[in-house]
């Protein structure tokens, strides 16, 4: 663990990513304490609609007179909790399936992997939109839709790792000393397969925030008056280009957060998988 951190500290983009992720995490946890107008999550002040950025409202105000700066800060918690829920649900589905498919072989494995391939072949956003449309548009249905489309990535990774590891000599040696299947799979194969899963999950967090914002923008995700970044951009469309600050700052929040997760994920991948390490 210390070894990984030390390597990471030499990777400037990854450190930048880690910084952004930690910053967003702090915003998400302490949001209501840090925001200058925490009540603006729901309240509206029609007397101060669409004010440009100023000292009192650093990012300006929106169509209902709410402070955009506060709403961007308050939006971090929503974005992060969607991302964490989606990615952990996807892992909960994908990792066990990958372990079973990789260790068992035969038609069980074939069946799981073919279903995985089919789900993987459908563009994620399209499937998520279709699922979100089928159910009533709400945050929960968006999260479920995203989870149901993201698990195949984990299944693929875990399957490949399990295949490799179950043919490895140390697993053979474990069978030799009489270790049972569950001991081998959960105590030996799973921990050894975990690092690429963590890398994928980190990148997945950023990606999920982006897709959740898109779903919010299309009206399939968060519902007003929630301080959602994607929703804010959708609401700002009628006031563009005059109220440029309305779309710009939530957009920047999405951009920076997603970039942070991607930089961190790339950095972790470089450490875990030396084959695709950037030359420097």
């Amino acid at each position: 663990m210390i070894h990984i951190l030390r390597k990471l500290s030499r990777d400037l983009p990854a450190m930048l990513g880690l910084g952004i992720v930690l910053f967003v995490l702090v915003l998400a946890i302490l949001g209501p304490l840090l925001a200058p107008y925490p009540e603006d999550a729901a309240a509206s002040h029609l007397t101060r609609r669409l004010r440009p950025p100023s000292a009192a409202y650093p990012f300006g105000t929106d169509n209902l007179g709410r402070d955009i700066f506060s709403r961007v800060i308050l939006g971090a918690r929503g974005a992060l909790s969607i991302a964490l829920t989606v990615v952990s649900t996807a892992m909960l589905i994908g990792v066990p399936l990958g372990l079973i498919a990789g260790y068992r072989g035969g038609w069980v494995s074939e069946g799981i992997m073919r279903v995985t391939d089919v789900v993987l072949a459908i563009p994620q956003l399209v499937l998520a939109l279709a699922l979100a449309q089928l159910m009533s548009p709400s945050l929960e249905s968006a999260m479920l839709a995203l989870s149901l489309t993201y698990w195949p990535f984990f299944t693929r990774i875990v399957y490949a790792e399990t295949r490799r590891l179950s043919a490895s000599l140390f697993v053979d040696a474990l069978r030799g000393i009489g270790a049972g299947t569950s001991r081998i799979v959960f105590l030996h194969i799973l921990p050894n397969a975990l690092s690429p899963v963590i890398v994928r999950a980190t990148i997945g967090l950023g990606f999920t925030i982006l897709v959740a914002a898109v779903l919010g923008f299309l009206g399939m995700g968060a519902t007003p008056p929630a301080p959602d970044w994607g929703l804010a951009i959708a609401e700002s469309r009628t006031y563009l280009p005059r109220a440029w600050w309305y779309a710009t700052f939530p957009g920047l929040a999405i951009l920076i957060t997603v970039m942070g997760f991607n930089l961190l994920g790339d950095g972790l991948r470089d450490i875990v998988d030396p084959r695709i390490r950037r030359s420097r």
Binding site: F170, G178, A179, P191, N192
Partner: peptide
């Protein structure tokens, strides 16, 4: 290669006893 790279030697050796 017959040893799990993530497990310390003590844990690996004890594992056999635990299984038995």
């Amino acid at each position: 290669a017959a040893l799990d790279p993530w497990w310390s030697i003590g844990r690996t050796l004890e594992e056999g006893l635990l299984i038995h």
